[in-house]
Every structure is written in structure tokens, then in C-alpha cells.
Design a protein around this nucleic acid. Structure first.
Lengths: 193, 193, 193, 193
DNA sequence: AATGAATGAGGATTCATTCAT
DNA sequence: GATGAATGAATCCTCATTCAT
């Protein structure tokens, strides 16, 4: 019987290494060899499992989006009121495994990848739509017809905070970042129209 | 007689071509040859004038930032009250030569370039600081100590709108984009604290 | 109990698959994996049985040459006169399992293989000598000293017909091919010198 | 003014080197680096001029076919009667720059190339059609309706002689090869039907 | 000023082959 | 007997950059 069951282990190692390398260099100009080396294997094996560099990148994206989704879902189970849920969603963007230096760097580069690779674009669109849906769902109960516009504003600010963090030096401060968006959320909720 | 005074002409052609190509491909993976070809010259000449690909990119960045600055200044001369000035600054981000498809694509990629090239990072920081200064200057008169935070929020949303536009298909709608940020500005100004 | 006696079965499957793949692609640029996959096993097993890709190719050659030899011998048992025997030999080249598309493609590539691999060259030389011997044996009885030259001419034409068929599209027409060589044979036999 | 006019020189050097290398190794498994090295340049330059390995191969094929065509045309100008012209065409196949070891090796491999590359197939078809036309043109005057079949036989034998020569060791003997085909030609011309 | 010529360095990808189980 | 795992060694091709003219 062959040595078996390595595939998921190797793939995960490669995905981690990819995120790490993209985050470290801040760029998609990462070689498969670099990634493979960091993951402790030959570049040939990386190709064996993923077929191409593009697929490796996409797997890394899916991983990040999946972590993100889990974080959001995790935050939501604890929230009761619409107000709490909104705050939870916002905070999930800046907590846990999400708002780490390397993930932020990777995220920025995925936006670039999406300019070229249709599947990357699709994945980002899925992410955006989910966020929008999540926000609108609760906003509507609180501010009615203005929910859509407010959700777009919140989503834009979240993305903006991410991209700006990519320029900063030093460790990201998730609390500070969340506070900024939460302030905006409060304004929207308290606006009297 | 030798051709004289070609340098600024050539350089400008290269800068334009660079922005165009980055915008077109949505990526920094643009070859010097592509750029030079579009600018109507050989890649050797491009190197002759700029020395390296990195310098070409930086010149393109400076060009975009300079266009941006001019647009903002132009908008400010017509504005009288702090409120008008704030609206003018916001709108300048989404009007004229700024909020075009190719410029948006280039902008996104400059954030990536800044991860690797210190001078690019410096340039983006200058841009951010100016925007912040501009906003705070007038916000302070209207909302006092909350000016700093509000300015950061506005700047983040502006960047977020840019990055999100990069994912969209079709021509950018500057008016719609500006409206989103102006709504947020209004909220900040009307907040009662 | 271990599976026994698999070796000949596996080997034959590999040989068939090799001929098929070489014929299909019309080239020796066939990977061991492709061959093994078609033969329903892993490429590791292919190596286990044959030791190297070269040995797989050589086994395929031997297989084809052996089919060829059987076809010729089979044709000869039914022939009585020298004239009949000559016609039988010629026809055997273009009948049965020989003049099939994939075998023709493989044959052409074996000539290429023979340029590099001595054993392949040796095998093709054996084939050529046998054909020559067969033809001369009967030709001598009919046309005496001109037998050698005529045999060389016939053999050359046979090979030429093969190589030309490799360029054609569509199914090979063995009857037509045989007729061409038989016409030439008739000329040699009827020549009056 | 730039250093200029190298292109045809480089291209020709590459074509020669390609034929040499294919002939030497007897295979298409020749690397661009090998070819470029023999042609006295970097592999990058080879790509610069030809774009791809396939194009280099095709250029080599065209070169050989063009030499071949020139040889045939050269032989025809001196021939007067149909009989002379036929002999001239046959002999041209085995004289001059054609029936050299390396060219023969290349020729064989072009048949293999034609299995994969459509343009290579087209080129070989052109060659075959021209030869056929040449032969039929004069044969018809001498043997009427049998011309077509006889031309096919002659062409097949010529190709067969080539492929068989590829197996031999030592320098090709053009005279001997031509004699074999000329004998067959004589038979066709003298056949009484 | 301008460019064709030229290359070194590198990168994705492939594949025959070996190994551990 | 059988195979998934694993890799070293290639190979094609690209590209920023330099140079001679």
C-alpha cells in the first residue's frame, strides 16, 4: 500500500506558504519555488498538486475568504439584536485571523489578481455580495430604505481601511480599525431622516 | 542640428503609456517593451530616459498624484465656505481625469508597488497626508475635535470606493461614487454630539 | 495468495498502450504516465516492469516486428510457386495488423528511435535483412542475378509507401498500397534482359 | 544609427545549426540552447528572431525544401527530352546538397514533425505534390495513362531510399541510390502494355 | 537622439525515475 | 504486486538591461 493521504496536508501547507509569501513580499511576484520551499517541498510537487501557479493563488484566496466567512459566522451566533449583529459583522472584519499583516497584504494582491483572473474576480464578488447581504439584512430593520446605501458605504470603508493598512508600518490595530467603522455605523443608525 | 528638447516630450509619452498599460492590464506585469511601443519608441530609449523600469513606474505615479493635486486645488478655488470646500475636495476625487478606469487600475497597483518600492510608499503617504490635512482643516471649523477621526473615515471610504470600482465592469460613475462619500460627510457634519 | 503471473499481462498491456499512444500522437514525445494510464496502471508500475522508458519503446518495437514476422510467415504457408510467395510477402506488408494507422505511425517513429538507440537500430536491421532474404530467395529463381537489386528496390518502395501513408489523412488502404508494389514486382519479373 | 542587418544572417545561421543538430542527433529532441550555441548566439536571441522552437524547425524545413527545389530546377534546365528530364528529376533527389547525412536525418524527422505540426504537414504535402507533378508531366508523354501510377511508385521509392539511408552507417552514396530508382524508371518506360 | 542587437538571469512547467509503504 | 509521494534535472520562453553604432 502506498504512502497515502498527503494531498490535503501538502495543499494546506502550500496555501499557508502562499499567503505568507504574498504577505511578506507584498506582491504577487512570488515564485512557485519560494512558496514550495517555505512549504517544505519541491516546486515540482506544488505543481503536482495544484497544476499551476494560478491555481495555487486561487486556493490561497479561497482559504482566506473561507477564514473570513467563518469569522463572520462565528461572530453572528453570539449576536442577538440587529444592532449587535451589525456590530459583530463589522468587528469580524478586523479580528481573529483576518486583520493580520500577511492577510492584509494578500487581500490587496487578490484585488490585483482579480483584474486578470476571472475566477479571482468571481470570488471577490462573492465576498462583496455576502457582506452586502449581511449588512442590509439587519440595516433594513433599523433604517429601512436607506439600508442599501448605508451597507455600500460601510463595505467601502472596510475595504478602504484594509488598503490603507497595507501602507502602514507596524502591526495592524484591529480595535482601532473597527472603531472607525463602528463610528460610521453609529452615525448611520442615529441619523434622523 | 541634433533634435533638442525631446526629453520632456518622450518622458511624458512614456508616462502616459505606462498609465494606460497598467490600467489596461490591471497589473504591474507590464513590460518596458509594451510601454515603449505604445509610446512610439524603442525600449532602449525608455531606459535611456528613465534608467530603469522602477523609475518609469514612479514617474507615472507622480504624474497621477500631480493630476490629482491639481484637480483638488482647482476645486478649492471655487469653494467659499468650509462646507463647500469639503464637498469640493470629496468631489475632486471622483471627477475629471481622476476617476477614469485606467487611472483607477493604476492607483490600485501603486498600492502594490508601495509594498516593495520605498519611494512609492513615500509618495502614497504624501498623498494621504495632504488629503488628511485638507479635510481636517475645514472639518475642525465645523465639528471641532472629531475632525481627525472623521477625516480618516472619509479618506478610508474614498480609497475603498476606488478599490471596489476596480472590480466592477463598465465605466466608472463618478457622480454616484461622490454621492456615497458626500452622504457620509453630511452625516458627520450633522451628528449631534 | 499473491497475484501471480501478472507480469506478462501487464507488459502486454503496456506494449499495446505504447503503440497506441505513439500512433495517436505520431511522435515519441509520449510520457510514461500517458502510456501507463492507458494501460490501466501507474507509471511506477510501468517502470517496475520495464526499468526504463527506452525499454518500453523497445518492447513495443519487438512486438510490432513480431506481428509483422507472423503475418509474413502466415502468408507464405499458403503460397506454392516462387511467384506466389513473392506476392504473398509483399501483400503481408499491407494486410492484417500491419498496415493500420497507429502501427504506421509507430513504425515511422521507430526509424527515429533507431537514430539514437542502438538496439532499435539493430532491430530494424534485422527486419530489413529478413525482408531482403525472403525476397531474394524467390527472386533468384525467377530473375537470377538481378534478384538482389530488385529486392532492394521492392523493400525501398515498401518503406516509402509506409512513410507516405503517415502523411495522409484517413484510413490506410492496404489493397491500394499493395497493388502499387505488386505492379513494380510484375515489372521486375517481366523485364526482358 | 543602430547596428543593423543582422536578422537574415542570424536566421540563416540558426537554420543551418538546426539542420546540423537534427541531423547529428537524428532527432527533434534538440534544445534551442544547443541550436543557438552552435549558431554562435544565446538562446534568447534565437527566440527573439523566431519566436518559438517550432518556428525554428519550420524555417529549417523550408530551407531544406527550398534547396531541394533549386536542385531539381537546376537539373531540369539542362535536360531536353522527357526521358532526360525524368532522369534529371530522379538524380536531383540524390545529388548536391540533398543526399547528405544530416539532411537525410532532418528529412526523416520532418516527417515526424508533420504528424504534430500542421504547417510541417502542409510543407511536405507541397513537396510531394510538386514531385508528382514533375514526374507525371514527362511520364505522360512516354507512357500515357500509366503515368500517374508510375509517378507514385517512383516517389514512394525515393522516399523509401531516404528513410533506409537513415539507418545506414557511413556516408550516403547518391550514385548508388539514384541508380536504384533509375532502374525502376527504366522498367516503367520499357514496359510493354 | 535613437535603436537594433544581444544576453544573463530567472521562472513556470514537465517528466523520467526512485522510494516508502 | 502496486501506487501515491516526491524530486532533480531539464527546457522553453520572457524580460530588464546594456551596448555598438
Amino acid at each position: 500500500m502506498p504512502k497515502v493521504g498527503m494531498e490535503p496536508i501538502r495543499k494546506e501547507a502550500l496555501v499557508r506558504a502562499t499567503i505568507h509569501e504574498i504577505g511578506r513580499t507584498g506582491s504577487l511576484d512570488v515564485t512557485v519555488s519560494q512558496i514550495a520551499k517555505r512549504a517544505g517541498m519541491s516546486s515540482a510537487l506544488a505543481h503536482h498538486y495544484f497544476g499551476s501557479k494560478e491555481q495555487i493563488f486561487l486556493a490561497a484566496m479561497r482559504h482566506i475568504l473561507s477564514l473570513y466567512g467563518a469569522e463572520v459566522r462565528g461572530a453572528l451566533v453570539m449576536a442577538a439584536s440587529p444592532r449587535d449583529r451589525l456590530r459583530a459583522v463589522v468587528q469580524a472584519n478586523f479580528s481573529g485571523l483576518n486583520f493580520r499583516r500577511e492577510v492584509i497584504g494578500a487581500w490587496l494582491n487578490f484585488y490585483v489578481l482579480a483584474q486578470t483572473v476571472p475566477e479571482a474576480k468571481r470570488l471577490l464578488n462573492v465576498y462583496q455580495r455576502r457582506l452586502q447581504t449581511n449588512l442590509v439584512h439587519d440595516l433594513r430593520k433599523l433604517i429601512g430604505p436607506r439600508a442599501e446605501a448605508a451597507a455600500r458605504g460601510l463595505a467601502a470603508m472596510i475595504d478602504g481601511v484594509y488598503i490603507r493598512q497595507a501602507l502602514r508600518t507596524g502591526a495592524p490595530d484591529g480595535a482601532e480599525a473597527a472603531a472607525m467603522v463602528l463610528d460610521y455605523l453609529t452615525l448611520e443608525l442615529e441619523a434622523q431622516r
